[in-house]
Design a binder for these strands. Structure first.
Length: 192
DNA sequence: CTAACGATTCGCT
DNA sequence: GCGAATCGTTAGT
């Protein structure tokens, strides 16, 4: 079932990040349907989180998307090379987002292999890798996740509490004490 | 206009 | 483990 606006607009971005693990991210791009079960996420908050692009309510042309109502895609270019995919959460005016960092390939695996030119285990095990596997680029920034271009479904996959790992976020050492926030959620494996 | 710098990945040592 | 690749965003002149 397609995730609704109500799922995304909740006020606790860490809760949304936690619950996105186990959901299924789809894309229908260039006529190819691809999907993966979300295995890793990170939460970013526009208030009191120096790791967030919209920290201290910084509002620029780039971060404006994060201030919109939850349920939109925030996709940006990282290191000039990698397209990173985020889900905008919270209500309009409060800039929160969840970075999708890993997937377990689920559908369109042949197409993913063609896009990535690598083996199954390495198709989507990284934030820059999964966007390439799914054909997601900054061209799709601000896409509405309720439309069937990029969307997320609940397939009833349950993550047991003891299967969900929690840690510091990756690659945000520049954020000072906020780098210590335990806002990364991931599973080591998925059971279908 | 200029300069610094990334929410990463890959290949080589 | 280390460094290059590569370019849009941001802040400051």
């Amino acid at each position: 079932m397609l995730l609704s606006t109500d799922f995304y607009t909740r006020s606790d971005v860490t809760l949304v990040a936690r619950e996105l693990v186990g959901k299924v991210l789809f894309s229908n791009i260039d006529g190819k349907l691809t999907a993966g079960i979300i295995t890793e996420t990170e939460a970013y908050c526009g208030r009191d989180d120096k790791a967030c692009h919209a920290n201290n309510n910084l509002r620029t042309k780039r971060t404006d998307i994060m201030y919109q109502n939850g349920g939109l895609a925030y996709i940006y270019l990282c290191y000039g090379i990698h397209h990173l995919f985020n889900v905008v959460t919270n209500i309009q005016g409060l800039a929160d987002a969840v970075l999708i960092r890993g997937l377990y390939p689920f559908e369109g695996i042949a197409e993913m292999k063609q896009r990535r030119k690598t083996s199954f285990d390495n198709l989507c095990n990284g934030p820059g890798k999964l966007t390439k596997a799914l054909g997601i680029t900054t061209h799709f920034n601000k896409t509405n996740l309720l439309e069937k271009t990029i969307w997320i479904e609940d397939h009833g996959i349950k993550i047991k509490p003891d299967e969900l790992n929690i840690s510091k976020r990756i690659g945000v050492e520049y954020a000072g004490e906020d780098a210590d926030k335990l806002w990364r959620f991931y599973v080591d494996s998925v059971s279908l």
